[in-house]
Amino acid sequence: MKDTLAEINELRAAGRIGQWAIGGAMGATLYLEPISTFDLDVFVLFEGSPLILTLTPIYEFLKARGHAADGDAVMIHGWPVQFLPAESGLLREAVEQAREVDFEGVPARVMLAEHLMAIALQTGRGKDFARLVTFMEARVADEVKLRELLERHGLGAAWKRFEQNYLNPS
């Protein structure tokens, strides 16, 4: 993983991507117990936002460095990395405000717990709700900050439904 993160930093240094942050299960693993997953979700900002977003420059750069595409991911030092453009307001904010992490000497960025929770709520698959319950049980999020964030991104009603269905079912 250390080498994988170093390679993503190279992408950034080469200007192929803007700011980036780890999300998904590997992001949640920073705050919770380890979560089984097959890939590493890396959300990226594109500076100067071209009208048509394309991941081709990322794939070309990595291919030249010996990392082959593997379906919709790129295999980098044993990890299938999925690059996802942070297009929505919520994703953009999550990348911009991500937490700096030192991974055995390699700098990395991981989304904040509150953003990971809001994204899970918005994504809304069964496993996302299960992860949200784990986040709530672990009490790792700032609830005031979470509620403010949910309201700001239009997720207040979805959160109420989640609370009724999973936190206070009766």
Partner: peptide, 21 residues
């Protein structure tokens, strides 16, 4: 205990789970 582990250690556990899966 698992939650309190350092991130790199948690990642190593995920890597083992991936290999087993």
């Amino acid at each position: 205990r698992l939650m309190a582990l350092p991130y790199p250690e948690k990642v190593r556990i995920v890597e083992k789970m991936r290999a087993a899966a």
